[in-house]
């Protein structure tokens, strides 16, 4: 049984013929759409490395069957920067050294973007740490990650203020 679905990935519409309903969004991105920025860490929703935004919300792409997402908008790490201009979360991760090996980083960053959009953590360090706890980092760059998310939240709020002023 094959399925024809259409996804908007990083702003571009992609028509995908799925030969197999078993394909997860993660494996679709990595193995079929040449978007390997999204990483596989556990493939079971236990580490967060595969986090992407689906319709603006952060989810584990390893547990999302691609076939269920017909019509969805997907944002991956490859779609976050605007040309050479990094997203504030990306820039903050570099400034605060919020990663070491970089493997969990795409998931951390997408999770942070999702967390900031959710708007429940603000700049409270404990709420940020709790909100980022679905993303394991074995290098344990947690200190820098928490600082980066806090800093990016501030930067984005300031940008929003400037934009609305």
């Amino acid at each position: 049984m094959s399925f024809s679905i259409s996804l908007t990935i990083n702003g571009t519409r992609r028509d995908v013929l799925l030969e197999d309903a078993r394909v997860t969004l993660l494996d679709l991105l990595r193995e079929r759409l040449a978007l390997p920025g999204t990483k596989k860490g556990c493939d079971r929703g236990q580490c967060g490395a595969c986090t992407v935004l689906v319709d603006g919300r952060r989810v584990n792409s390893c547990l999302s069957l691609a076939v269920t997402l017909d019509g969805a908008e997907v944002t991956t790490i490859e779609g976050l920067a605007q040309g050479d201009r990094l997203h504030p979360v990306q820039a903050a991760f570099i400034d605060h050294d919020g990663f070491q090996c970089g493997y969990c980083t795409p998931g951390q960053i997408m999770s942070a973007v999702g967390l900031i959009a959710e708007g429940h953590a603000g700049t409270d360090p404990d709420r940020i740490r709790e909100g980022m706890s679905g993303n394991l980092c074995r290098c344990a760059a947690y200190h820098g990650i928490a600082e980066a998310v806090q800093d990016a939240t501030r930067r984005m709020a300031a940008e929003d203020e400037r934009a609305s002023a």
């Binding site: 929703g45 952060r58 989810v59 584990n60 547990l63 999770s111 999702g114």
Partner: peptide, 9 residues
């Protein structure tokens, strides 16, 4: 329960 990502799904 779970994580922000899992609760979203």
């Amino acid at each position: 329960g779970a994580s922000g990502q899992l609760r979203n799904a």
